[in-house]
Design a protein around this nucleic acid. Structure first.
Length: 551
RNA sequence: GGCCUUGUGGUCAAGCGGUUAAGACGGAGCCCUCUCAAGGCUCAAUCCCGGGUUCGAUUCCCGGCAGGGUCACCA
């Protein structure tokens, strides 16, 4: 068979360059020794999720701690998956989590010398190599229809044989020249398949940087390399792109492990050296007692948007991911509390071999801790930024008064005490913590654990002596005074010594005042809260609470 | 089902032939205390099962079992 003619008929393109030209066009990168070139290669569905962030963080850390490059390539070979604005969305979402690309699609960088970074725009490169493979007899046209393929698969399943297009099932592999041209003449659509020379009896071990040594079976499937629309499949594009973009380390999900044999054969026939690989484990979740991969369908928490809406501090999400990416990160951080996470020496070898369960409690803990490290001013900026985007009308109105909010934040965060409070976990919840400081969102639940007479006496007793000029000590002394006057123990020790002698303790008195002023049984220091609210409002609230009593 | 892969407390996990089997989150309790939070202290809780190898296995080997991945002209 005249393969040269066949190749020219199948791929008549006139814009293809001699193969060596591509090597010259994309020369080896001039990078320091040990520098790793990594990449994120999403399809443009516009949906980047926690799993993407997880691997992007690993890619970014490895590239940037080794002095390498982290680039963005868009795998848009499947027309059906394209979504408008998806690429920008990927970039901005990742940027929110401090993950930035050095080069790639829609990245403005002088480093962009390995593009185009959209696979559809690289069609001629793939086609040039496919044509060469056909000329060398390593690829051939296949005219099988979807129905025929399905029928074969059903037959294979029925016979309990391996499914796929291989060996005797690869019908088009043995088509004669006449048959091929006859099919072409009647305009039958075709795909280009690899003519595999592998044998599943041969096994070799492959070193995965994350999973360690794994045994791989040679590929014997005549996989499709060019689809009927002339665009490559993932496998073919992967081999060509990662070679010419000079990727040194491919980090991708473990779902790709199964097609590794195909990739190995492809790199071999193409004559390219293979990059190193690291197959990551997927984030799991417990669902109805069973462990399963986080799914974008069922799990809203997989969406990065979810964390933004809920007001998670981006650094907290990053650090949470760091703890599951490299389990020694937490320990390192405790030893270097002042260090930035980027100073941590991230290693791919430390990455876990099995899928981690997504642990919301852990994320929340890290989030509270990170947030507690901020200054009141930084917290203000964070919360108010969230309120602008996702808060209520009232939230925005409240946050307009920065002078009033800062002292509240100092109180809620405990910035003046030796140890910070960790009340704020995320913006959506933190903003609500401030509600009782504003009359329009003050929604008291007046449930007092004492009879109305007693409550009334406490409330009016304190109102009578309240002086906004008091410092905390003086304020508390007055609470004690009211306690004694109303039959409560002023000192806890007295109360504990003999509870029967009192209605309760100062704690109960403070509790009554707290409910009246904040509308809730728990809050930070009441004295300070009253100082922030000011005389008028404090007194008004004591009075409002008294008025609610059924006397 | 075939192939690949994983199996240490509820979760994330150190450990890689001899350890009282780290630590963190979560849970329980105590202390502190005007409540809450924070903090300090304490406690409960783990080597999937069965065979080997070995003086000795959580660590090595084999077999089960259980989980995960994958079997497209999707990536």
């Amino acid at each position: 068979m005249d393969l040269k003619k066949l190749a020219a008929t199948l791929i008549p393109d006139t814009d293809l360059l001699p193969l060596e030209e591509y090597e010259k066009m994309y020369p080896a990168r001039d990078l320091p020794k040990g520098a790793q070139v990594t990449r994120l290669a999403p399809s443009p569905t516009g949906f980047i999720h926690l799993g993407n962030l997880y691997s992007a963080l690993a890619d970014e850390r490895i590239a940037h701690t080794t002095g390498g490059i982290f680039y963005l390539r868009i795998e848009d070979t499947d027309e059906k998956r394209r979504v408008e604005g998806a690429v920008e969305s990927v970039i901005t979402s990742l940027k929110y989590f401090n993950i930035n690309f050095d080069e790639g699609a829609e990245i403005d960088s002088p480093l962009n010398k390995y593009g185009p970074y959209y696979q559809r725009q690289r069609a001629s490169i793939y086609r040039a190599f496919a044509k060469d493979l056909i000329e060398r007899g390593l690829a051939y046209p296949c005219f099988c229809t979807e129905d025929e393929l399905n029928a074969v698969r059903e037959e294979q399943v029925a016979k309990k044989e391996t499914t796929g297009y291989y060996g005797r099932y690869a019908k088009c592999r043995t088509l004669s020249e006449e048959q091929i041209y006859a099919n072409l003449a009647v305009g039958k659509p075709f795909v280009i398949r690899l003519r595999s020379h592998g044998d599943i009896a041969n096994k070799t071990t492959f070193r995965d940087r994350i999973k360690g040594d794994i045994t791989v079976t040679e590929n014997d499937q005549d996989v499709v390399i060019l689809k009927s629309d002339g665009i490559p499949t993932y496998h073919f594009a992967h081999a060509i792109d990662d070679h010419f973009m000079r990727t040194t380390l491919v980090i991708r999900g473990e779902e790709w492990l199964a097609s590794l044999p195909v990739h190995i054969e492809l790199f071999k026939v193409l004559g390219f050296p293979m990059p190193a690989y690291g197959h990551t484990c997927s984030l799991m979740k417990v669902d109805g007692g069973a462990k399963r991969k986080l799914s974008k369908r069922k799990d809203p928490e997989l969406s990065l948007d979810y964390y933004r809406r809920d007001g998670y501090y981006p650094l907290a999400v990053v650090k949470y991911l760091m703890t599951i990416l490299n389990s020694n990160f937490e320990e390192w951080e405790r030893k270097n509390p002042a260090a930035d996470y980027t100073q941590f020496k991230f290693t791919i070898e430390k990455m876990g071999k099995s899928g981690a369960l997504f642990d919301l409690d852990k994320l929340n803990d890290i989030s509270r801790t990170e947030l507690s490290k901020l200054s009141a001013e930084q917290m203000y900026d964070f919360l108010s930024g969230w309120a602008d985007e996702f808060g209520t009308e009232a939230d925005r109105r409240h946050f307009a008064d920065r002078e009033y909010i800062i002292p509240i934040l100092n109180l809620v965060m405990g910035t003046n005490s030796k140890k910070r409070r960790k009340d704020i976990e995320r913006a959506s919840q933190g903003v609500r913590l401030l509600d009782y400081f504003f009359d329009d969102t003050f929604a008291p639940d007046y449930s007092f654990p004492f009879d109305a007479q007693t409550v009334s006496a406490v409330l009016s007793g304190f109102a009578a002596v309240y002086d906004p000029a008091d410092d905390n000590a003086a304020w508390f002394a007055k609470v004690k005074g009211v306690a004694s006057a109303c039959g409560f123990a002023a000192e806890m020790s007295d109360y504990k010594a003999d509870p029967s002698k009192y209605k309760g303790s100062v704690a109960d008195v403070a509790g009554i005042l707290r409910v009246a002023v904040t509308g809730m049984p728990n809050s930070p220091d009441l004295g300070t809260i009253m100082a922030i609210l000011g005389r008028e409002r404090s007194l008004a609230r004591l009075e409002a609470a008294r008025a609610s009593l059924a006397l």
